[in-house]
Design a protein around this nucleic acid. Sequence first.
DNA 1: GCGCTGGTAGACAGACCGGTCTGTTAGCAT
DNA 2: ATGCTAACAGACCGGTCTGTCTACCAGCGC
Lengths: 223, 223
Amino acid sequence: MSRTIAPDGELPTGGSSSRSAGGTATASGDARQERPTRPSDARERILGAATRLFYAHGMRAVGVDLIIAESQVAKATFYRHFPSKDDLVIAYLDRVDAAWTGQLHAAAKAAGPEPADQLVGLFDALATACRTEGYRGCGFINAAAESQPGTAAHERTVAHKSAIRSWVRDLAVEAGATDADKLATALTLLLDGALSAGALDPDPRAVDVARATARHLVDEACG
Amino acid sequence: MSRTIAPDGELPTGGSSSRSAGGTATASGDARQERPTRPSDARERILGAATRLFYAHGMRAVGVDLIIAESQVAKATFYRHFPSKDDLVIAYLDRVDAAWTGQLHAAAKAAGPEPADQLVGLFDALATACRTEGYRGCGFINAAAESQPGTAAHERTVAHKSAIRSWVRDLAVEAGATDADKLATALTLLLDGALSAGALDPDPRAVDVARATARHLVDEACG
DNA sequence: GCGCTGGTAGACAGACCGGTCTGTTAGCAT
DNA sequence: ATGCTAACAGACCGGTCTGTCTACCAGCGC
């Protein structure tokens, strides 16, 4: 079961937590670690480390001590910003929600002005996500696997999936689909399946098939 | 995060671990618990409890102490049968594999002699699974969410998904599909998506849509 | 100067984790 | 009777978990 996780350098996402946001990066080059005494970004560092670690290893597998070490923050600071680990978990899920929803919207927009094309364009976001190093499936589905139906984490997952489906349905209505509900459901099923397959199937053609199938379903429903 | 799990009675799967297999159930009715002194089924009790608990709560959330308590077994007995928790986890996954593969095969068989109908029949197994109380999605996808790419648990998941897809492809070949690979991939994507949606989407129509879409894809590919 | 805010370091508590160990008992074959 | 096997009960170990607490420090507005 291997309950512990090495404190650093084993993550597939690569680069050192992206901590150069504010500019003027403590230019005096003598110190070893140059921990940013720049105030008020402690919360951001915590959430950034938690996002990376929770996604890569699972929420339960990552302890607060590791997050604290990775974000270079004092324990009291951690608990000032997030009164409990659960609060951090839901902040993490909110961030995943915003990120994935944003990528989906961007991919739809990039696919052109036609709603029918935008419905297919969603699968470009999928392809991009699956290709990124350290891809480990849908963060929400993974979170649901680690939480119980009554909990806040689980309900965020349900709400997220529902919001995506509702947005896809609106797009399907715009595209003039004969049965927008059915088309939206089929597309989101395909999307969720590919989201899992992208992490489990070594063959990357699965996402191509997902996209092609989506194209086919959309063309057929929108005449 | 609520790390602990109540020792009994909170599981959605219902009934008291099905421990009346061997007949002659210690008919002397004086004792309270009637733990089966019937020899050699200790391993089965452990694996049964683990299967129920791992699926319901996640592998990481369930400690060996709880499994030991639920299966009414001594700790030494537990570790005699399963040298480590990891061994139990893979035994659990093997059991889930056998169960789900069996249900899929049975549903295909029940759908009739035509391979094309059998491909659609898979989705009957899905519908049945999603309707059962305590359904929590695909045990393998959930397991993958709790394990790392290199580990045995993760590789069992990959192997399981690969085996299912390969079997579906054989069925698609038998059915005379124009592109059996593509059809099999599309169907398994749909299946995996619906497996997740069945646990997350309160609306049960998603599985109907999955089945209808499968019917459509099969009809089209097999002319 | 003074207090407030937001940060640092780290000891500590109490529960739980996987796993080992000692010792006991029942059934059964020799 | 003896010895083997498989089960039992449960104390114990080192380590990890979340969360609390004390103590100190830097900047800033008053």
